[in-house]
């Protein structure tokens, strides 16, 4: 069974939908298991100013994407890299055991987006340096 918190986030996610002109995007998952998660970031002064998700997946996948976004917003990118899936689970309350992998996917998507951001920054710096 899902907790009320999980159902509410699934039905009315606060961070769902595409972001225009993001500073970075990260996508993880595969179609075979049926979960694909895409994270959009706006970053200023090393801080995640805004975050959005798009998820192809079940109730747990959508709800954990939303919880993960809430955890990441306002954090520095270093802090955000350290978000554990257990923190997402704590936020959601009860979800079925076989759905825990969905929350793991959430943290992976965020890390991927941050890594992409760093790559972009490095390229910019290199260009400026050159």
């Amino acid at each position: 069974m899902y907790s009320e918190e999980t159902i509410n986030r699934f039905k009315n996610p606060r961070f769902g939908g595409e972001m225009k002109n993001p500073d970075a995007v990260g996508q993880v998952g595969n179609m075979k298991c049926g979960d694909v998660m895409k994270i959009f970031l706006k970053i200023k002064d090393n801080i995640i100013k805004d975050i959005r998700f798009q998820t192809f997946g079940c109730i747990a996948a959508i709800a954990s994407s939303d919880a993960m976004c809430e955890l990441a917003k306002g954090k520095t990118i270093e802090e955000a890299m350290k978000i554990k899936y257990s923190e997402i689970l704590d936020k959601l309350g009860e979800i079925p055991k076989q759905k825990i992998h969905c929350s793991v996917l959430g943290t992976q998507a965020l890390k991927k987006a941050i890594e992409n951001y760093k790559k972009k920054q490095n390229k910019k710096e290199n260009k400026q340096g050159g």
Binding site: Y2, K11, C33, G34, F56, A61, I62
Partner: peptide
């Protein structure tokens, strides 16, 4: 759209359905 999410949403409206999606299977295969 993933079938289990759709079924889960219908469930919120008291509509019972089922899906062949991987997420609903123990094997996580469609």
């Amino acid at each position: 759209i993933e079938g289990e999410a759709l079924g889960g949403y219908l469930d919120q409206y008291n509509i019972c359905s089922s899906t062949g999606s991987a997420c609903s299977e123990k094997s996580l295969e469609p």
